Amino acid sequence: MIFKVYFQESIKEVPVREKTKTVFIEAESLRDVLSRIADRGYNIEFVQEVKGAYLEYEQQNEDFKVLEI
């Protein structure tokens, strides 16, 4: 499964929509995603499974890249 993770780069930052970044991660579950990025110090806002038409839409973006962790 592919998950889209919305985050702030520093856990000390207050979430501000304009500074929110995203990354795509292939993992077995939500717990697996969180364990893979736990050591990066991100302030995780939201994790969403991406599939179907939404995944196809995201793949059309030239910046689409699944992070290998």
Rank of each mutant, 00 (worst) to 15 (best):
V16G: 02
G41M: 06
T22A: 05
Y42F: 15
V66C: 10
E58P: 09
E58R: 15
T22H: 08
D39G: 11
V16Q: 06
F46Q: 13
E58Y: 11
K21P: 03
I11Q: 04
K12P: 00
M1F: 09
K65Q: 09
Y42T: 07
K19V: 04
E56I: 11
K4H: 00
R17W: 06
R40T: 12
I69T: 08
Q48K: 11
I25N: 05
Y42K: 12
Y54D: 15
R17M: 02
A53Y: 12
R17C: 00
R36F: 01
V33L: 07
I25T: 03
E62L: 14
T20Q: 05
R17I: 01
S29T: 01
F3W: 08
E26F: 09
I2K: 07
T22Y: 07
V14P: 00
V50T: 14
T22K: 13
E45Y: 10
F64G: 11
V14W: 01
T20Y: 00
E26W: 08
A53C: 11
V14I: 01
Q8E: 05
S35Y: 12
F3I: 03
K19P: 04
I11L: 05
R40H: 14
V14M: 01
V66R: 09
Y57T: 07
V66F: 12
Y57H: 13
A53N: 14
I69H: 06
I37R: 00
Y54P: 09
Y6D: 02
K4L: 02
Q48L: 13
R17K: 02
V66K: 11
N43V: 07
E18W: 02
I25D: 09
E28G: 01
F24L: 06
E62I: 14
V16M: 08
I2Q: 06
R31H: 07
I2P: 13
R17Q: 05
L55T: 07
N61E: 02
L67K: 08
R36C: 05
F7R: 00
F24C: 00
V16W: 04
Q60L: 12
L30P: 02
N61K: 15
D39C: 10
V23C: 06
R40L: 15
E56V: 11
Y42D: 05
S10Q: 14
S10H: 13
E9V: 08
V50Y: 04
G52E: 12
D39Y: 15
Y57P: 03
D63L: 13
F24V: 04
Y42V: 04
A38E: 13
K19Q: 06
K4F: 06
F7K: 03
P15M: 03
R40V: 10
F7S: 01
R40K: 15
V23T: 07
F24T: 05
R36T: 00
S29K: 02
Q8S: 03
S35T: 10
V5M: 05
Q60N: 14
T22C: 07
F7H: 04
E68V: 07
E58S: 13
L55E: 10
Y6K: 05
E56C: 10
P15N: 06
E62Y: 11
F24E: 02
S29D: 04
S10C: 09
D63R: 13
K65E: 15
E9C: 03
K65C: 09
E58H: 11
S10Y: 12
